[in-house]
């Protein structure tokens, strides 16, 4: 079954915007989608990846390296040939072992040929793509620690079984979960660049439309994809154009000052908030074809960039988004 078309997802604008921004600027550091079940969280991730242009990789490279120079020595790739692959979306299931995540000694080759070889794990497969964790709040702590480390350094370092291996692991982390089933550790929360809260739509017409499109898609996937193809292509072209434009989008002193003022007013911890806010605003500006970051850009990305970073009273009702919106309106006027 092909992926559901991204532009056919009904509503959930904040989630879609956040996903598009990470596609424009992968350095944003991923998206956390928290909310009700059955709201199309995983559908959106898969849809986005299907929409992105394929990546060019060295043929047979286990870490999706673009060229031979980038491919690690242990992979032993001799060829210079490249091939195209769809943007990888790797699922990280709960209960996954550390071995599977980081990679480990290739038992098969060790047992049969007596060779010490490295078998790449999920992090290698997710390089240059998306790593999707459903129910990220229920993930074992030690796997979370490991992911944080790699997500921050962009490199997977394996020191085990007598192996000493490193390879690039730059991926967009997409986590989803339901806060009623457990909180996410603040350390992990902060590492996600953007966060979105999704709710089941409460408008009956919107709900009907969701089911109607889903039914149409399941009844005739090809026809449905063909119908939405132009719209998806528009989003894809927008993302590609935005990537090209991103470097030239100006971030003036005023924008920096505004961002700092907003973060100060909200009392968000550390400087990561400001950095993400600026980057997200720049990505949004690029996506919308602007030459410079303006106040409206900042105001629009502020909730998704900052809501999860507030030093919040853990008992505070989940109203941080509203708090950010209010403060953004006040500071940015």
């Amino acid at each position: 079954m092909p992926a559901f078309p991204f532009s056919a997802i009904v509503g959930q604008e904040a989630m879609k915007t956040a996903m598009i921004l990470t596609a424009v600027e992968p350095r944003l550091g991923g998206v956390l989608v928290f909310g009700d079940r059955g709201t199309g969280k995983s559908t959106a991730v898969r849809a986005l990846a299907a929409l992105l242009p394929p990546i060019t990789v060295l043929r047979g490279c286990p870490v999706n390296a673009a060229s031979r120079a980038d491919s690690p020595d242990w992979a032993g790739i001799e060829t210079e040939e490249t091939e195209t692959r769809p943007t990888p979306v790797v699922d990280l299931p709960l209960g996954v072992t550390e071995d599977r995540v980081t990679g480990a000694l290739d038992i098969e080759r060790a047992l049969v040929h007596g060779e010490k070889a490295f078998q790449p794990g999920l992090l290698a497969r997710a390089n240059r793509g998306y790593l999707y964790i459903d129910e990220v709040n229920l993930l074992e702590d030690h796997v979370v620690d490991l992911l944080l480390d790699v997500a921050q350094s962009g490199e997977n370092l394996v020191e085990r079984d007598g192996l000493s291996i490193r390879h690039a692991a730059r991926f967009v982390l997409v986590g989803s979960g339901n806060p009623e089933e457990g909180e996410l550790r603040p350390q992990l929360l902060d590492r996600f660049g953007l966060s979105v809260e999704v709710r089941s739509p409460t408008d009956i017409e919107e709900r009907i439309e969701v089911i109607r499109r889903r039914d149409a898609f399941e009844t005739d996937p090809d026809g449905f994809l063909a119908r939405w193809q132009p719209e998806d292509a528009r989003v894809r072209d927008g993302i590609l154009a935005a990537r090209a434009r991103l470097a030239s989008v100006e971030t003036g002193d005023t924008a920096l000052r505004d961002a700092a003022a907003l973060c100060l007013a909200l009392g968000s911890d550390g400087l990561r908030g400001e950095l993400t806010l600026i980057r997200a605003a720049r990505a949004l500006a690029a996506f919308e074809g602007s030459d410079a970051v303006d106040r409206p850009h900042l105001a629009r990305v502020a909730p998704i960039a900052l809501a999860h970073r507030l030093r919040r009273d853990p008992l505070d009702e989940a109203g941080s988004t509203t708090r950010v919106e209010r403060m953004a309106a006040e500071v940015l006027g």
């Binding site: 079940r37 059955g38 199309g40 009956i204 009907i208 089911i211």
Partner: peptide, 21 residues
């Protein structure tokens, strides 16, 4: 059919959209 199923789910307080599907 679909509007009727969705409305029915709402009347029983069923939030998830998987149910009508």
């Amino acid at each position: 059919v679909i509007p009727a199923l969705v409305a029915l789910a709402a009347r029983f307080g069923i939030d998830t959209l998987r149910a009508p599907q």
